[in-house]
């Protein structure tokens, strides 16, 4: 990069018939190039953004598979695990029983799970998965991948652990298990107490 900006090579002086500066059209053309570069930079920054691992959890509302809507901010005061999954994803099948067990064990203490079903070919497949593992926590289909994009999820399974004040505290890439998660949940539950 060095040396490029220093290319001050345009000799002045010699004047022929014609302008010395730039015409309006020329400046517009150069400005267009600059604007294109800016737009590309913005897009690159967006593309490079990764899953949030701290800070306020982006709020969303999800249409649930068994009817009704669920808004993340309504769960303020609870410890929430947002779990992105799909029935075709083998690691999701591995973690599903553990997630249900965690939900069963810590629900009373103020913990809940939101299952975000992503890129599923049909809602029936999602329901079959839920029935197969006897899942009772709320699950919703991510229409037009809004939540997936919001959390910059690359592919299922990925999970975000949100504390009682609605901040992202942990991010799990790939499948989770009971033991690893229960300690983290207990820590967060203990925070207000």
């Amino acid at each position: 990069m060095k040396g490029i900006d220093e290319l001050e090579f345009l000799p002045g002086g010699r004047t022929k018939a014609g302008r010395k500066g730039f015409t309006l059209g020329s400046m517009a053309l150069l400005a267009a190039v600059l604007l294109t570069a800016l737009a590309l930079g913005l897009q690159l920054a967006r593309q490079n953004a990764t899953q949030p691992t701290r800070g306020p959890a982006p709020d969303f509302s999800l249409g649930l598979l068994n009817g009704g809507d669920l808004k993340l901010s309504d769960l303020r005061g609870q410890v929430v695990l947002i779990n992105f999954w799909a029935s075709w994803c083998p690691p999701c099948r591995v973690e599903a029983p553990d997630l249900q067990a965690l939900y069963a064990d810590y629900r009373e203490a103020g913990f809940t799970i939101i299952g975000v079903n992503m890129l599923e070919s049909s809602p029936q497949k999602a329901r079959a998965f839920i029935d197969e593992f006897g899942i009772t926590y709320p699950n919703g289909e991510d229409r037009e991948q809004r939540v997936t994009k919001l959390y910059r999820v690359q592919g299922p399974p990925e999970s975000f652990l949100i504390d009682q004040r609605g901040r992202v505290r942990r991010f799990y890439y790939g499948s989770v298990n009971y033991d690893g998660l229960s300690a983290a949940i207990e820590d967060l539950l203990a925070e207000t107490a």
């Binding site: 490029i4 900006d5 020329s26």
Partner: peptide, 21 residues
């Protein structure tokens, strides 16, 4: 991106400058 933009602007600027003259 910066290199692309810089090279394009320098070259286009030089071209338009010569042309305007």
């Amino acid at each position: 991106l910066a290199f692309w933009a810089a090279m394009t602007l320098i070259a286009l600027g030089a071209l338009l400058w010569r042309w305007n003259r």
